[in-house]
């Protein structure tokens, strides 16, 4: 099984990898007996906004975490901008699921955003006025400037999500990976987040979002990656987001009528 995964990796290596902000080859992750992600290849299109979609438990978040080295994969290679990811950390920003941290942690909103400047500050680099100004600017971009001195536990779910986004903005990355940023947030926050993500795309950045709301895929994204443990489809929305690929990814879990409606929306 492992051999198969690694031979896939070699077979798929080509020049496209060198330019891709994130290229995954033969990624297999397992938490127990059954693999959560099996032999997945992904080549993220530079400058695009890509939605990673699939049913619950399909391995969307796990694939992202394994690609970033947060969980240890059984096999697979990951490159960012043509180099091993470990050498490109400064160019990659990650926004974890909001529920993955304890928001009772004793810290303020501004301090969380300043965490995004860790690579710039290093262990003992002095925190200067310009660092704070930058953090405030990032908060401003997500509409959270007035909350800078609040304890993070006092924020609503949507506000917490915006603070996480502001922290990633502070990293000045070229590739942004977001895990379910729209989960459980209010409509205003969803609008604010999508506006920031579109501005990142306009600035030439690459955005990859683990997404669960099929109804908004065509509005928000130009590329999709469908996964259900294995890769189902990958490509521009009009090619890869179709009734057939959705059926393949979700199986019987989506009503046929729903798929028809979505594929009409997809054009």
């Amino acid at each position: 099984m492992l051999e198969l995964a690694s031979s896939n990796g070699i077979a798929n290596t080509n020049e496209a990898l060198a330019e891709s902000p994130l290229a995954i080859r033969g990624l297999t992750v397992s938490y127990g007996q059954k693999p959560a992600v099996f032999s997945v290849d992904m080549t993220v299109q530079a400058g695009a906004m890509t939605a990673v979609i699939g049913p619950n438990g399909a391995g969307k978040s796990t694939m992202l975490k394994a690609a970033l080295g947060i969980v240890k994969p059984l096999s697979g290679q990951v490159t960012a901008f043509g180099k091993p990811l470990e050498d490109q950390r400064a160019r990659v920003a990650y926004v974890p699921q909001r529920a993955s941290v304890d928001w009772d942690f004793p810290t303020r909103v501004i301090d969380v955003v300043l965490m995004g400047l860790y690579r710039e500050l290093g262990l003992l680099g002095r925190l200067r006025g310009r660092h704070k100004a930058k953090a405030m600017d990032c908060l401003n971009r997500v509409g959270m400037r007035d909350f800078a001195d609040r304890q993070i536990g006092q924020l609503s779910g949507g506000q917490q999500q915006r603070v996480f986004l502001a922290r990633s903005l502070a990293q000045d990355a070229d590739l942004y990976l977001l895990d379910e940023p729209f989960a459980g947030v209010d409509a205003a926050t969803e609008k604010a987040i999508i506006a920031v993500l579109k501005s990142l795309k306009d600035a030439g950045k690459t955005v990859v979002v683990v997404h669960h709301d099929l109804a908004t895929v065509t509005d928000y994204f130009d590329h999709v990656f469908l996964i259900n443990t294995r890769k189902v489809a990958e490509g521009p929305v009009d090619v890869a987001f179709t009734a057939e690929t959705l059926q393949a990814a979700y199986g019987g879990r989506l009503a046929t009528a729903q798929i028809d409606q979505l594929s009409r929306a997809a054009g």
Binding site: L68, I70, P96, Y118, L124
Partner: peptide
């Protein structure tokens, strides 16, 4: 004192800390 920042970041958000190279 020396590891204040990485300790704080990784205690709050371990996954994010890894992606920062900690």
């Amino acid at each position: 004192w020396l590891f204040w920042r990485p300790l704080k970041i990784s205690t709050f958000d371990e996954g994010f800390a890894r992606t920062m190279g900690i």
